[in-house]
Design a protein around this nucleic acid. Structure first.
Lengths: 209, 209
DNA sequence: TCATGTGAAGAGCTTCACAGCA
DNA sequence: TGCTGTGAAGCTCTTCACATGA
């Protein structure tokens, strides 16, 4: 287990290629050039070639990339070649939205359960995903080998929840709570703070610059 | 109207400083050093000083930054010194979550209305925010001088919706639909694609590297 | 003395330009 | 010929190291 990751910027773009390849394959397209991928993604063709070349020579000079072959390669690289079990912690509107979206539209993950502390939610189901009490988290993580936790809990509970998540054995966390989580170095936290992103956008809405 | 923006990376961090300053001021803290801000944010102290120094010399050597003064400066820089009117297009679970969060927790924006094409939603209210038919968009944008649209519509409708949004006069868009929107150069689109982000995270969950 | 403000160095990522190969 | 793969150059952002000034 050597920790040499690909550049973050590359990793972020891989699933974009994947989505396009899925569509192309659905439409029986067998070959795609970096130029065409560029048009679909908005990334430059050189960048796409560099991204893919980082992992190996997947294309054919003069023609392009075989869609099915490239898709398989990207799936392997990301680790999506087998379904990944995930869980959603916090079953508010955002949590529900994420459960629904991932169950219905994201074929690569499997939402095994949701968790909340609100007793009135416990026992309810969102599209077959049961909401459990947070005390059951560790048990579920062990049972299903859950790899990723999506946290959509209020800011004031986020630190105590993340500690439970780590204690359960999960080490990749997708956090929507608007706080800086304090976690050990080996835990990978990806923060999305929607109101921060909205506020920074407003910078570009102001006229006088 | 000169288009010379601050570095994107800096703009993204400004609202983070703002949130911490809001908290400090609430607790009657008057002075904060870049070192302390570093501990709160996880950004390096040098980076914080560089970020702030880009816009001027806001600190006092030997002591730090005055919280109230710095907050005012950042508000002015981002353009949050006056409330910004925004709208949410697509009133599914994600749209509702964003309306609720921004109404209740984001003091800097004002959600003037939501829009959807689903007739069964039109007329309903989420915390006083009325859901209207999308045909009323332009009228609302003009009436309230709406600056930002949050789009949480299904992928297949996103391109036609964004065209209506632009037509209405909005030029800053926060897009959650998982597609590349084709827009004129002067339109600022910020994409957040939650399933792409989740998929790229799984790269870091895979053990063998 | 202590923390800011800032040139210079460094790291990371993107674009350029073209060699290499089907 | 046409598109991939890739060193080199360029750009952006971060970190370093220290001069500056309350």
């Amino acid at each position: 287990m050597v920790h040499k990751y690909a550049p973050k910027s590359v990793v972020r773009r891989l699933p974009v290629y994947l989505r396009i390849l899925d569509n192309l394959i659905l439409n029986d397209v067998e070959i795609i050039s970096s130029k065409e991928l560029s048009e679909e993604t908005g990334f430059s063709a050189e960048q796409i070639r560099k991204d893919l070349a980082f992992f190996g020579a997947f294309g054919t000079r003069g023609s392009g990339y075989n869609t099915i072959f490239l898709r398989e390669k990207i799936l392997k690289i990301i680790g999506l070649d087998e379904q990944t079990n995930i869980t959603v912690i916090g079953a508010g509107h955002l949590g529900i939205a994420l459960i629904r979206y991932n169950v219905q539209k994201n074929p690569y993950v499997n939402v095994v359960a949701a968790f909340d502390i609100d007793a009135s939610l416990v026992g309810q189901r969102i599209l077959d995903v049961e909401i459990n009490d947070i005390s059951k988290l560790k048990e579920t993580v062990k049972k299903y080998d859950v790899k990723v936790a999506i946290m959509t809990v209020p800011a004031e509970h986020a630190q105590s929840v993340v500690e439970k998540v780590i204690e359960s054995g999960i080490n990749v966390i997708f956090n929507f709570a608007p706080v800086k989580l304090r976690v050990p170095e080996n835990i990978h936290v990806h923060n999305v703070d929607l109101s921060i992103e909205l506020q920074s956008l407003i910078y570009y809405a102001t006229a006088n610059r």
